[in-house]
Amino acid sequence: MLLPAPRRLLFHAAIGAAFLLMLAPVAMVMIISVFRQEIVSFPPPGLTLEWYVNAWARQEFARGFLTSLQVALLATAIGVPLGTAAALALQRSAIKGKGALNTLLLGPLAVPGVVAGTALYMFYLRAEFWLDRDLTATLEGLVAAHVLLTIPWTVRLVSASLQGLDRTAEEAAANLGARPLTVFRRVTLPMLRPGIVAAALFSFIQSFENLELTLLLVGPGRTTLPVAMLSYLEFRIDPTLAAVATVQILLVAGLMLITDRFVKLSRVV
């Protein structure tokens, strides 16, 4: 039996080691992105921001970034209202088969991204034939695929908020003379706002950094940032990639921190 003090020390050491293990690669990427040398090695000599300039100058990263941004914004704008409405129906209405509906809506989270991506790809090819228009490598096609990410995350986060909502506040509003629609607009929705904001931020992140689902759905001229990074990696490794990754990491980490202020992520994810 260990004494309390050494035991606590061991506990903290274990936590420290776990963090180190997880964050070391991230830190490495960030460090590499600001040093001069071209062949990735450690420790690197000479500080520079040149790789960032280089990254932005390379068309595939600049356009990939813009495409990712577009897709993520649109997929969030479409998925969050739909997911919120679905969560309300699941939690509040008396419709039958809620369990099945819930499973269906959360389903995309359970299927590995590559599998879902392949299925979508095959579906798109078929649909292109019937509709006689392109779907793969189009903005619509990518947004439609990413809505499969944003809806389940929204359903999950908003459902959690709804479950924690104090329904007596809604009753109090009705008691004071508010009709159902007014109760929803003036009380329910504002009380759900943190959950919805969190759902939007989280949906954006999920779409923005998605690789697996997107891999087969991009094409020349319409590629998302993560896929562009992967293709670049196929024929060269230099700190340009580290620079791009750093930007992506900082953006996602920033959004996560903001999200966590609205809804404790550890409780719902």
Binding site: D166, T168, A169, E171, A172, A173, N175, L176, R186, V187, P190, M191, R193
Partner: peptide
């Protein structure tokens, strides 16, 4: 036309 006071107060938090 009733005015109710709830056990949990049920104030509008926002």
């Amino acid at each position: 036309d009733t005015g109710m006071v709830f056990q949990s107060y049920a104030l509008f938090p926002h």
